[in-house]
């Protein structure tokens, strides 16, 4: 059984009288442990698809089967629980809580999962160590470099043992050297922990890290190729 099964997903936005299809009948299947790059120009529907995959948004039509359950018709709070347990997010702008230590940022998903404080602290420290930030637990985001902030975000994404990490332009704000470090981190998470990594990017270099590339254009999938240097 596939980890993710998208069946005829359509997302329609209404702008007054006009209905715009951001996605039209997108069907995809993603297996556990894949490393995928989603590519396409802006307006191609890749961000909309990402939001649906991340359970931040619901499709207008179609099914989204995640680990055997159709989440397309779930309510707000059910989707919140799915996001908490199954999906880790990494954003272009890091999206860490300001004036809050790295440790507390990483603890955040566990706070909403009712993990006791001691365990929370331990898991968060482990996750920070895993991304190479041991010793920086008490630094605030403004005391960390961009690369370090993105590592905190990755630690936060993986701390709840989510099987999927969704990264939206994760290296968009980083220089080339740091981008390479961050991408290596994704690769190791994918290979060592069998985490399914899905990255939205428009950079070819970044897409090179993936084993499968899905191209979007005008709300439809125009290409789906399995290749890459890790095969």
């Amino acid at each position: 059984m596939a980890l993710i099964e998208a069946v005829d997903i359509t997302k329609t936005y209404r702008l007054g009288e006009i209905a715009v299809n951001a996605l039209s009948n997108v069907s995809l299947s993603i297996e556990k442990g894949e490393f995928i790059a989603i590519m396409g120009p802006s307006g191609s529907g890749k961000s909309t698809f990402m939001n649906i995959l991340g359970c931040l948004d619901r499709p207008t039509e179609g099914k989204y089967i995640l680990e055997g359950t159709d989440v397309a018709r779930m309510g707000r709070d059910e989707l919140a629980t799915i996001r908490n347990k199954k999906i880790g997010f990494v954003f272009q702008g890091f999206n860490l809580l300001p004036r809050t230590s790295a440790l507390e940022n990483v603890e955040l998903p566990m706070l909403y999962d009712g993990v006791p404080a001691k365990e929370r602290r331990r898991h968060a420290s482990e996750a920070l160590a895993r991304v190479g930030l041991a010793g920086r637990e008490h630094h605030h985001p403004n005391q960390l470099s961009g690369g370090q902030q993105q590592r905190v975000a990755i630690a936060r994404a993986m701390v709840n043992k989510a099987p999927i990490i969704l990264a939206d332009e994760p290296t968009g704000n980083l220089d080339t050297k740091t981008s390479v470090e961050i991408m290596d981190l994704f690769v190791s998470l994918n290979q060592e922990s069998q985490i399914t990594v899905i990255i939205v990017t428009h950079e070819k270099d970044i897409a090179e890290y993936s084993k499968r590339r899905i191209y979007f254009r005008d709300g439809v999938v125009v290409g789906d190729e399995s290749a890459g240097r890790h095969d």
Partner: peptide
């Protein structure tokens, strides 16, 4: 607003 968005993304429910 952004803080609330982050919290929602990592699993905060309505009543949280």
């Amino acid at each position: 607003t952004r803080e609330i968005g982050i919290r929602m993304a990592v699993g905060a429910k309505t009543w949280d």
